[in-house]
């Protein structure tokens, strides 16, 4: 898709706030789970094509991803992405350094799946609450690969583009940048926009 649809200031502001709440909830849940302070930065939203996203993530960079497919009123593929090395760091920090490197790698898949599940659920939950709509959500899937491969297998339609959110995660002195990506098709984008407007008009 060459042209990315636009959102106006208020739509974008509301979407941002929805993710802000989602990410805030995720931080609280993660912090409760691992019993340590976790900071998540204010999310920055962007709309990108697949090619642009691959460039942003780094063509050859090995990433680890957790994705959950969302369907119902709108269809999207939600993905949480972390550079592979950083994901090991997250797991190590969250598990409190007592486990050997080999052990961390062993647990990476399981641990990241749950972390991804928490972050994605929080964001999808926040969307669902803001729109007063229930989505059908699949269980999370874990995958390690370079960006092009990760995106290819999750492409929903030929006209999909990406609602891209950069978040910074800080825990015990480590700052790690991760990314939330919602692969969304043109039709679903219109529905998203409509939902945002509906919420806006009911609020104000």
């Amino acid at each position: 898709m060459d042209k990315i649809p636009q959102m106006d200031e208020l739509e974008l502001d509301l979407l941002n706030e929805i993710f802000n709440v989602g990410v805030g909830n995720a931080a609280a849940s993660l912090s409760q789970m691992v019993k340590q302070e976790i900071k998540l930065s204010v999310p920055e939203i962007d709309f990108l094509t697949s090619d642009q996203l691959i460039k942003v993530l780094g063509q050859d960079k090995l990433l680890c991803s957790v994705s959950q497919k969302v369907s119902g009123p709108l269809v999207a593929q939600s993905i949480l992405l972390f550079p592979d090395v950083d994901s090991l760091e997250i797991v190590r920090k969250m598990l409190g350094n007592q486990i050997s490197d080999a052990g961390i790698a062993e647990l990476q898949n399981e641990a990241m799946t749950e972390i991804g599940n928490i972050v994605l659920n929080a964001c999808i939950g926040s969307l669902s609450e803001a729109f007063s709509q229930t989505f059908i959500i699949d269980l999370p899937e874990f995958e390690r690969a370079i960006p092009a491969i990760l995106l290819e297998s999750r492409q929903l339609s030929s006209d999909s583009f990406i609602l891209f959110i950069r978040i910074e995660l800080s825990l015990s002195e480590s700052k790690i940048t991760g990314y939330l990506a919602f692969l969304i098709g043109g039709a679903s984008f219109s529905i998203l926009q409509k939902s945002l407007n509906k919420t806006l008009s009911s609020l104000i």
């Binding site: 802000n20 709440v21 989602g22 805030g24 302070e37 926040s126 803001a130």
Partner: peptide, 22 residues
């Protein structure tokens, strides 16, 4: 929306009230 313990604690120490978002 971030109701982590340390945030609530800091707020309480300051005499501020935490209100849940959204």
């Amino acid at each position: 929306a971030n109701i982590q313990e340390h945030i609530q604690k800091s707020a309480a120490e300051m005499g501020a009230k935490c209100i849940n978002k959204p």
